[in-house]
Design a protein around this nucleic acid. Structure first.
Lengths: 353, 353
DNA sequence: CCGGTCTCTGAAACCGGTTGCAGAGACCGG
DNA sequence: CCGGTCTCTGCAACCGGTTTCAGAGACCGG
């Protein structure tokens, strides 16, 4: 008890003092307190809790009991200081207002939970410089970083990886560890489906100019289409927004019988814009998205989309990061399958029915 | 240099060793390194960086220069150990897959950034027990907690507040510090609007049974309506989902001329369900939501809703928490205005046009 | 020229854990 | 019965900062 009287005069104590009205006597027990209560040394107490196999069963029990009784919670900072591990994982996403990232974060969080670690989150707002600053600051506190960064240059990421364990999501840079959805394969399937339905003139409404994923999709689609004797015309680049989708619907060539869009927002905008312009989906034109927000299943008509396993991606990124932290050198890229979900918005073109 | 050779044999060193392939010589400079490089003691170096007014300008410059040159970043754990502040804020939300919470998190994150702190995020999945466990674990690492907890009992929250600085969001428990959207006032306005349009028979589609906010809304609405000589019939409780909304649309009494729903999901479901049943919005029945997701503005027709300033709420919660941490005793509840956004989904009832 | 104040600096303690090392017994085989 | 191994425990160092305390000079007025 006297202990805490003393503490009030230290720098730490002052904080407690001011906030004291909410601490009502319950004081934070330290390892030393536990050790004393159990009649052992700090070292033994520590071992009893961390490496039980090193102490006699009887002592272990005494220590455990004392710890429980005192409500002992090891001080994370102190532990981090010696072990060099904070148990924190930095996660940087471009935004959260795009529901695309929510399941990703949730997946990551669940995986982190299972490994007794926590998620430090930051939002880059698609801004490379901001992102870099955030990453630097997070690095100081976290054991490693998970970044989903459509912006940010390859070299910057390489450099960052050299300093700190890093896992990329939805982005590939050389051999850096990464988790990517295999949208390419999924899109191939989706395009196959459209081709099989008889579409020969397809528009791709592309996303932001600097998006890595978008470029991948564009080239893959164009190549595949021309190989099949069809053509893909690219609209854009465009910001990935609802409004841009409306705009795109106006620029859409009349003879295109199907439209693929970079993401769900553009798709929703297109759906809206097409409807307003009197072009019916799928009667006049088929529509599909290269990702899948839940809203796409609730529109009229529901929109064919690519189901990207975001939650798994988030979880997997955490797993990969832990592998890195534990020294496994497997720095491979993990690919997650992205399967098309066929809905009512795609149908054979007019002439073919 | 020799220093780091030595370190390889310590516990810490071993980690570096294994991950060493990514650290390529660049070693983390410690305060001691900086001090030596500047020809001063650790103490002076620390002061030069933290409390510049305490050292001579010349030394300050030397130290600063040395720190920059060595790329010094203070070790967060070490600092936390002495200061008792980790600079981390725990944030617990029920879910992220409901876009409702995304702006909240982003607002909080931005505010945290401005105060040099970081956000530790966890997802309770509306599960009280899970939430409690997460809160316990976050408490160990964070200076304080922000919880948006529709579940979780008053007493548990009170108890938690006694142990750690805590700010509630969208929930009020006694005098605990909280940030709430004044949906009551907003709803009042909304209902006034409906009443003014001539609606006298209004349905409220309520949310989860254990939701604090829902109860607030229900009672407020019922009271206000009866005072105005109208009636509000309550449907539910229901899970706050799209599907539940569809279901609700079937249970909707024929003579209700307007429907208010607990949240956007239910609203979207209702819109869909009403459409399918051939009841037109707003010609046959008006529709409004007690919160506002962006999708509501993109439906046909766009839906009248209550605009809740979520981003501000998140930011404000962080500010409040910092006030607590700094010892300000203002433990008041902050109310944020929630204003109705009138859109095409609400119109005078049939008889009144 | 002297004592006192003020400014600046360094030594050392401290935060609360973890871990290398060595010593005390218990236990074992020869 | 003795030396050696094995099990368990404690001491003390250490992680990397912050802060107290006291001392060394510079500076000042009398």
């Amino acid at each position: 008890m006297a202990r805490h009287q003393e503490k009030v005069n230290t720098g730490l104590g002052r904080i407690y003092d001011l906030a004291g009205h909410m601490r009502q006597g319950t004081a934070l027990a330290t390892l030393l307190d536990v050790a004393r209560a159990a009649g052992v040394s700090k070292a033994t107490a520590s071992r009893a809790l961390q490496r039980p196999e090193l102490v006699a069963e009887a002592t272990r029990l005494r220590v455990q009991e004392a710890a429980d009784r005192l409500g002992f919670h090891p001080n994370a900072a102190a532990r981090a200081l010696t072990t060099g591990r904070t148990g924190l994982i930095g996660l940087i996403v471009p935004t959260l207002s795009n529901p695309f990232f929510a399941p990703l974060v949730m997946g990551a969080q669940q995986a982190a939970e299972e490994t007794e670690s926590h998620l430090l989150i930051a939002v880059s707002e698609y801004h490379a410089q901001r992102e870099a600053a955030l990453a630097d600051r997070l690095s100081e506190q976290a054991d490693g970083l998970i970044m989903v960064t459509p912006v940010g240059t390859d070299t910057a990421l390489r450099e960052r990886f050299r300093r700190r364990p890093l896992v990329l999501v939805d982005r590939q840079v050389g051999r850096l560890p990464a988790v990517v959805a295999d949208t390419a394969a999924g899109l191939t399937e989706l395009l196959d489906h459209l081709l099989a339905q008889g579409h020969r003139d397809i528009a791709y409404v592309s996303g932001p100019a600097d998006s890595w994923a978008d470029e991948q999709r564009r080239t893959a689609l164009t190549a595949q289409a021309s190989a099949a004797g069809a053509r893909v015309r690219v609209l854009g680049p465009l910001p990935p927004t609802f409004d841009a989708g409306i705009e795109a619907s106006r620029a859409l060539p009349d003879d295109a019988t199907a439209v693929l869009a970079y993401n769900s927002y553009l798709t929703l905008g297109l759906l809206h814009g097409l409807g307003a312009a009197g072009r019916r989906v799928p009667e006049d034109v088929s529509l599909a998205a290269a990702d899948d927000l839940s809203t796409l299943s609730a529109t009229t008509p529901p929109v064919t989309a690519l189901d990207v396993p975001l939650q798994e991606a988030g979880a997997l990124a955490v797993t990969r990061l832990h592998e890195l932290l534990d020294g496994h050198r497997r720095t491979v890229t993990s690919r997650l399958p992205a399967a098309p979900v066929l809905r009512a918005s795609t149908a054979p073109p007019r002439g073919r029915r």
